[in-house]
Amino acid sequence: MKSYWGIFKMEFKGELQYRAKALSGIATQLFWGLLQIYLYTAFLNSGSVDGFSISQMVSYIWLGQAFFALRYVTMPKRVGKEIVNGNVCYKFVRPINIYNQWYVEGIGQKFAATLLRFLPIIVIGFLLPGNLSLSLPVSVGAFFLFLFGLILGLLMSHAFAMLAVYLTFKTLSEKGSIGIVSAIVNMFGGLFIPLPLLPQALQDVLKYLPFSFITDLPLRIYIGNVGIVDGLVLMAIGVVWLIAIIAIGKLLIGGALKKTVVQGG
């Protein structure tokens, strides 16, 4: 366990060094958040969606932007490169499970990236006037469940990223692999379009699929779109999904590692 904690700390520290990256991330997220708010306000004003008011939508978007680094499925840094250039061989000569090592690395990076970015966006979100303002959570219970949901989301988002790592082993193309996985996950996880805006029939299916646990569920709990009891039930389903996706990832990557050929010097 100590070694995983060490890896986590290492990646956390490494990520903290990239402050300019975080700043530009914050700027992008603010701009993008405003854009989305204006766009969806226009939509909602010309019709209505059950149980999703404009102020809820605004909060949903601000929180989504604040935790963008957490919800956006990305490859753990370096892993793709390591696989393509063969540095991955050093992973083999450590007395530690390779999947776990990568998993923890990615979590550390994402955690640090999120920590560097979320606060300014939340603060600005609260300070914005009237229709653009982020609201408080519906209840204290909802707030804590929201926090717990974010942790589940972080673990889930990275479990998906590990599937992209597997694909990279197969295709040797980091960009292509993460492209496929993130397109699916981000679409059905509410990153492009908030899930409450999708047709009800689709929503009914999506809420049981693993993608929505990444951030859609915690955000909905925060704004009161999903009640606490429902939230708890769904989260239990989420935990089962998480275990399943990690297990699948471990199986696939374990198989790929056996066949790995590290070429050259």
């Binding site: 290492m10 520290k13 490494g14 060094q17 370096r78 250039n85 063969g86 540095n87 061989c89 050093y90 010097g265």
Partner: peptide, 11 residues
């Protein structure tokens, strides 16, 4: 491995 690195790059 003389041509690869086992140390972390940015720390």
């Amino acid at each position: 491995f003389g041509q690869r690195s086992q140390l972390w790059w940015d720390v």
